[in-house]
Each structure stands twice: as structure tokens, then as C-alpha cells.
């Protein structure tokens, strides 16, 4: 770990100013310190934001406003979230471990960086870590990599679970700027595709701080989070699906699906939701949804399996959500 100066932010605007000047914010630290030890992250200044008043979950406009410093554990344990947004609780509980979730925060988890093996190896070329150096995952071992939305610069995936559920719930990220102004960005638009600037994971700008995630009013219906991984627990998703789906009179009245493990961001495809809406559930429909979702999917060798896996698991999820038997 490179030496840094440590300070505590007293106010959100203060933290925002610090990031404008190149400091990194630390909350739970579960991802940042991991990367700092490997010197993949090398901040000169570390600003501890844990003393900011961003640690509560409050009701707002029929939904909930989850402070950026609410830990993953606290979020998943909140009665309102368990009752009204079970897909979010399930997704959080599918990620990491109790120990990590006790530290990891809502804002920090949104900013979690990729687990691409080559991003994690400082001695290998990686455009995300060192723009212009090349992508080692192309031509390397890419079993965990993206099948949607990747570029020639980067095929890394966003590794988290919570944000996949937030994308399905169409939550918004509340971001404060140095001048105290607030902007709201849909979670679906918060993370970026890599394009030719994979070093940027999301749309957060220097001088900005995530202050909260805002959930819309409860959508009800079936809420599922399905995660496929290499061991039963404590592993990143090969493929995950967050599903919020309502039925009325035998037809799908609401559908919102998001996918993890497939892309540089939690993947949401409006065409899939639209296709399902108003239709009677059937295997043919579910296959059609998978075909729409995966029309542009592309494997890079070791991750080719994600295409059939996604199709099969999507069918499992939709069967369960619509009450069709497995």
C-alpha cells in the first residue's frame, strides 16, 4: 500500500471538494483497501466519510431513501426492505459474507470495481487499470467476463449483486456536488459500458459524492434474485438475475429484469421487459425473452457458456415468478 494522508470529512460538500482534488473516499473499505494493498488503487489522500450523516433509511415519496453509508447488512435487515423490496434484500444476502456486508456500504458497493483477473494483476496489461496498455482478458482466461456490451478495450464485468436488484427496481442514485447541488441518476444509467474508456466504471465525476439510493414505491409482485456461482456461497456471480414481476388475470402486468455477471454494468434491457408485459406466461415467451436479451451476446471462449446458462436460468426465474412449475 502506498503511503497516503488520512483525514475525515465533516460534511458532504467537504468530501466532494476532496474528490475534486483527487482524494479517494473510504467508507467500508472492503473493496478499496483490497485494491490499495495490491497498489491497483494508489490514492495520495484518503478521506474517511464514515462520520457523515448518511447512515439511515428514510421514507420518501412512497419509497425509501437509503443513505450511502447504510451497510449492506443493515439494508438487508431493514424490515421495510425485507417486506417491500425482497429482491434487494435477497441480492444483498447473495453477495459476499456477513463479515463483508457488515462493512460494505450502499454507496461503496455501487462503486465496486471489477474482479477481472487481469485488472487484479498489476503486472499484466489492462486498459481499465492503465489506459492504453491493452486488454489481457482478450486472448487470456475470460471465463468470468462479459457477453454483452463489451468492447475491444475491455470485457470486464461489474461484479456486484445489490446493484442488479437496484436496476430491476429502477432505483435512483442521489449524487451531491461540491456546491451542494444534488443530481439523480437512475441506477440503470449509473454504471457505464467500457467503450474506449474502460477506466471509468460509472458516471460519478470528480467533485461528486453518492449520498443515497432512492427506491421508488414498492412494485409488489414476485421478487426473485437468482445467482449462479462456482460454489454454494462466497463467490461472485457467473450469471445472476433480479426479477420483479407482477401478474394480473393470468397475464404479466409488470416485468422488470436485470442481470449480473453479463456486462460491465448491471444489465437491463427494456425490450425484454416490454416483450413480457401483457403476455400470458409460457415457455415460448420465456425463450423469446432470452432470445431478445441475448441477440447481441458474444462469448470470448471460456465464457461462451454464459449464453446458454443465462437462457436456462432466465427460464427458471420466469417460471417461478409467474407460477409456472419447474
Amino acid at each position: 500500500m502506498r503511503a497516503f494522508t488520512y483525514s475525515r470529512a465533516e460534511a458532504v460538500t467537504h468530501a466532494a471538494e476532496q474528490t475534486r482534488d483527487g482524494a479517494r473516499l473510504i467508507a467500508g473499505g472492503t473493496n478499496l483497501l483490497d485494491l490499495m494493498k495490491l497498489e491497483i488503487e494508489r490514492p495520495d489522500e484518503l478521506v474517511d466519510i464514515n462520520r457523515l450523516e448518511l447512515g439511515t433509511i428514510d421514507e420518501q415519496d412512497g419509497g425509501l431513501r437509503i443513505g450511502a453509508l447504510v451497510t449492506n447488512s443493515a439494508c438487508a435487515a431493514d424490515e421495510r426492505i425485507r417486506r417491500d423490496y425482497p429482491v434487494l434484500a435477497r441480492a444483498i444476502l447473495a453477495g459476499a459474507t456477513f463479515q463483508l456486508r457488515n462493512k460494505a456500504t450502499t454507496g461503496g458497493n455501487l462503486c465496486q470495481r471489477t474482479r477481472c483477473y487481469y485488472f487484479y494483476n498489476r503486472d499484466q496489461p489492462c486498459n481499465k487499470r492503465e489506459p492504453g496498455s491493452g486488454c489481457s482478458a482478450l486472448g487470456g482466461f475470460n471465463r468470468i467476463h462479459a457477453i454483452l456490451g463489451a468492447s475491444e478495450s475491455c470485457i470486464a464485468t461489474y461484479p456486484g449483486d445489490m446493484a442488479v436488484a437496484l436496476a430491476a427496481l429502477d432505483a435512483k442514485v442521489e449524487i451531491a456536488a461540491v456546491d451542494g447541488s444534488i443530481r439523480s441518476v437512475p441506477v440503470r444509467a449509473f454504471h457505464r459500458l467500457p467503450g474506449d474508456t474502460p477506466e471509468r466504471d460509472n458516471v460519478l465525476e470528480p467533485g461528486e459524492v453518492i449520498t443515497a439510493v432512492v427506491l421508488p414505491s414498492p412494485a409488489g409482485g414476485a421478487q426473485l434474485y437468482r445467482k449462479v456461482r462456482d460454489r454454494a456461497s462466497y463467490a461472485f456471480a457467473l450469471v445472476s438475475i433480479a426479477c420483479v414481476l407482477g401478474m394480473e388475470d393470468g397475464r404479466i402486468s409488470h416485468a422488470s429484469l436485470a442481470f449480473g455477471g453479463l456486462a460491465h454494468k448491471p444489465w437491463h434491457d427494456e425490450r425484454v421487459d416490454a416483450l413480457l408485459l401483457g403476455r400470458e406466461p409460457s415457455d415460448a415467451l420465456f425463450d423469446e425473452a432470452a432470445d431478445v436479451l441475448l441477440a447481441d451476446a458474444r462469448g470470448y471462449g471460456a465464457n461462451d457458456f454464459k449464453i446458454p446458462m443465462t437462457k436456462r436460468v432466465l427460464k427458471a426465474v420466469l417460471r417461478e415468478a409467474t407460477g409456472e412449475n419447474a
Partner: peptide, 10 residues
């Protein structure tokens, strides 16, 4: 994280 030893749930 990526060399997967079995965990308790396995």
C-alpha cells in the same frame, strides 16, 4: 476469492 476452496455451505 477466485481459487475456490469449499466453504461451509458446500
Amino acid at each position: 476469492a477466485e481459487y475456490h476452496l469449499p466453504v461451509n455451505l458446500d
